[in-house]
Design a protein around this nucleic acid. Structure first.
Length: 510
DNA sequence: TCATCTAGCACCTTTGAAATGT
DNA sequence: AACATTTCAAAGGTGCTAGATG
């Protein structure tokens, strides 16, 4: 934004109201200094009442970019990858369903004595609704209107950096629902849409100071999923393992095998019908064999590779992958009729955004996996080069749902996509209310958070357009918006912040 | 007719309070 | 008395399925 102002790039047909607020870096510096610590502080500023169409976004390449030493690693990466291979589907129910695989991250690089909040929100991958048709996902039309965006605040928030770094941070209790009237504070998603969780690390003493704080956003390509009310992809993929036997993979099987709560379905033939329906393209000696329980399983070679690399630290990369080619697997995925999903029909360059976030590494195996969707689905072991790819990328924030995507400009790899619906109208006004869940002692996550969906009496959340620099951690500051802490009495929510129509965070804002 | 959604089911794990032991 | 460990029942999570809905 600064650069735009400086270079006169602001558009006349857009309304800007830019206000310099207290430099959060000074606050942080003060805070750190109180802690006796001295670290580099990032730069950020606040935008107030930004109501501009997305094309009025700043030129990211001209923005300064904050430094960050925070490293976030996705736990259970191997599991996520397995799901991702098939096409992750997350069940959402009216009463709320937990995620599986669950969101669990390992964090390092925090300041041990500084307090942080951990938040998760979900952003649509694109502007489309999908349907499962003939063994593959395809675009079924325009996406439903965005729901009030809720942000899940980890119950431990705020907690010192040492606490977060002590052990992996699990968002196990986060629940997804398709109930737009949900009163429990679950994350509301549309069925048959594609989403990606984003993890936010906010350095703040409490939720009230969040708006002055610096955010860092992390996301993992592997965690993209399609929300469904019932599993759509029933097909079973037969993957050859190094040991020579065939292993059947399907979403339900993966879940049953890996989720302890589904254990009851392993041995009691409860899913025999499904199994019967499932068509394995390849004859498999193991087909008739009783499926092995996870604890009995001998991980296939490639599987072991995953496990080995599962917790590879992801950090800012000095030798980064080119962002514009990022999202390699979306492009390659769609080449596989077996593999997930209709690739997100949004050109990568159009996602190149304003706001940026750190996209944590996608092992490059995925790319060839989808190219080799054939018989021997061997997952190549990763070499050093591959591991190099497995580094955090600060990628262009996914602006897939941002309007004005030119569906004609499909990047390479998107050519096989079904015809796309016309571009969607511009986003609605972003003005909204922010309600953070607080308990009596001001601790996030408490038992009785409040929210006020669709409220508009408060000014919109504004945030910093993160200065840009590729492959650096993104930082931004949130809003000058006053939190509506009054909320609606009697609504018991857990660890939830609700941000009216659009997520609190930059990406959705634009 | 079809795609999607819902509710109930049985079975399982998790959780936390109570009981017991050191 | 304080703490650690074990036990156990309730709560809650799971996919499956038939039927409902639009």
């Amino acid at each position: 934004m600064f650069s735009q102002v400086a270079s006169g790039e602001l558009r006349q047909d857009c309304t800007y109201s830019v206000q310099m607020a207290e430099d959060p870096s000074q606050r942080v510096a003060k805070m750190l200094s109180n802690c006796g610590l001295c670290v580099p502080v990032t730069f950020s500023f606040l935008l107030a009442d930004v109501k501009a169409p997305c094309e009025a976004l700043p030129s990211p390449s001209l923005e300064p970019f904050p430094q960050s030493s925070i490293v976030v690693t996705l736990e259970d990466m191997g599991l996520w990858m397995k799901f991702h291979q098939i096409g992750t589907e997350m069940i959402i129910t009216k009463s709320g369903r937990r995620m599986f695989p669950q969101c669990k991250i390992k964090v390092s690089g925090l300041i041990p004595y500084a307090k942080y909040l951990m938040l998760v929100d979900f952003v649509p991958m694109d502007n489309f609704r999908y349907k499962w048709n003939k063994d593959q996902w395809e675009v079924a039309g325009k996406a439903e209107p965005q729901l009030p965006c809720r942000t899940y605040v980890h119950p431990d928030s705020p907690a010192p950096g040492s606490h977060w770094m002590k052990e992996p941070v699990s968002f196990q209790k986060l629940k997804l629902t398709n109930n737009t009237l949900d009163q429990h504070g679950h994350i509301i998603l549309h069925s048959m849409h594609r989403y990606k969780p984003r993890f936010h690390i906010v350095q703040a003493d409490d939720l009230f100071s969040v708006r002055w704080s610096i955010f860092q956003v992390f996301s993992f390509p592997e965690t993209v999923f399609t929300s469904v009310t019932a599993y759509q992809n029933e097909q079973v993929q037969c993957a050859g393992s190094a040991s020579g036997h065939w292993e059947m993979l399907s979403i339900t099987k993966l879940k049953i095998d890996n989720n302890p709560f589904a254990k009851g379905f392993r041995e009691h033939g409860k899913n025999t019908r499904r199994e019967g329906r499932a068509k394995c393209q390849k004859p498999s000696p193991a087909k008739s064999q009783k499926r092995k329980l996870p604890e009995e399983k001998e991980p296939a070679a490639e599987e072991r590779d995953f496990e080995k690399d599962e917790n590879v630290d992801v950090k800012e990369e000095s030798n980064p992958v080119v962002v514009s080619s990022g999202y390699p697997f979306w492009g390659s995925e769609q080449n596989s009729s077996q593999a997930f999903p209709a690739a997100s029909p949004v050109p990568a360059e159009q996602r190149e955004g304003l706001a940026r976030e750190q996209q944590v590494p996608t092992p490059s195996y995925q790319t060839y996996r989808f190219h080799e969707a054939g018989d021997s689905q061997q997952l190549p072991s990763r070499d050093a080069a591959t591991l190099n790819d497995f580094r955090a990328r600060c990628h262009a924030l996914d602006l897939a749902m941002v309007p004005e995507h030119d569906s004609k400009q499909l990047p390479e790899g998107f050519t096989n996509l079904p015809p796309l619906p016309p571009p969607l109208p511009p986003p609605q006004d972003y003005t909204g209310v922010v309600n953070m869940a607080l308990d009596s002692v001001g601790k996030a996550g408490a038992r009785a958070p409040m929210y006020s969906p669709y409220g508009t009496e408060q000014g919109l959340g504004q945030w910093v357009v993160p200065p840009h620099s590729q492959y650096r951690a993104m930082s931004y500051s949130a809003f000058s918006t006053e939190y509506n802490t009054q909320g609606t009495p009697g609504h018991a929510h857990g660890t939830m912040a609700e941000w009216s129509q659009y997520p609190l965070f930059p990406y959705a804002c634009w």
